[in-house]
């Protein structure tokens, strides 16, 4: 039950994009089509889940026993960067079409603050290994959800008569803001 709540909390109530405002770059950059938003969401979920567990291991099995918790930032960045590189190599080898559509966004995941944020939150809240795993999946699903909602709205917007001065970035920001407001409605349902 606790894990279920944790999942819901990470996915909806404390959504990474819409309540913590982490990972805004892909949220705006890759939310033009629902299909690519879903693919990106899947990729981020993948990286988030794996990095949540790996960073947990590194923090609790290496940094804590040797009293070098101060190195968490460096260590986490190291892990995330290597992980994304590995994923990128794998995708490049295995599926060319996916690499061509998504390849350009993969380096973006490396520098995505949502992933580092996830690792740091997990440490801060002293999650157990399984909790970290669920937290990672939840955060990834939440990210995907936000991206897909945004992409759906933007696909509709393409066909709508947007006032000239709001076109492009302007209306995107307004939509993102309204979405964040809507998600604020969940605030407090589940603590953390």
């Amino acid at each position: 039950m606790k894990l279920m709540l944790l999942f819901l909390s990470a996915a909806i109530v404390n959504n990474f994009v819409l309540s913590y405002f982490l990972g805004i770059c892909p949220f705006v950059g890759v939310s033009k089509r629902v299909s690519s938003a879903l693919s990106m969401g899947l990729a981020v979920t993948f990286v988030m889940t794996i990095s949540a567990t790996v960073t947990w291991l590194i923090y609790n099995l290496i940094l804590v026993p040797y009293n070098v918790e101060i190195l968490e930032y460096v260590a986490f960045i190291l892990v995330i960067a290597s992980l994304v590189q590995l994923v990128e190599m794998f995708i490049r080898k295995v599926s060319k079409p996916l690499y061509d559509t998504m390849g350009i966004y993969l380096p973006l995941i490396t520098t995505n603050c949502a992933i580092l944020g996830l690792a740091l939150f997990a440490v801060l809240r002293e999650y157990s290994f399984i909790e970290s795993l669920v937290f990672g999946i939840g955060a990834g699903v939440g990210f995907t959800l936000a991206l897909v909602i945004m992409a759906g709205i933007r696909e509709e917007l393409e066909l709508s008569p947007v006032p000239k001065h709001f076109q492009g970035a302007g209306i995107t920001m307004i939509v993102a803001g309204s979405l964040a407001l809507a998600f604020m409605g969940f605030a407090g349902l589940i603590a953390n």
Binding site: R33, V34, S35, S36, L38, S39, L42, A43, T45, F46, I91, V94, S95, P97, L98, T101, M102
Partner: peptide
């Protein structure tokens, strides 16, 4: 992009 095949692909891949 043909949404469906690309989605299938990323679902497989990730």
């Amino acid at each position: 992009e043909q949404g469906q095949p690309v989605l299938t692909l990323s679902a497989l891949q990730y």
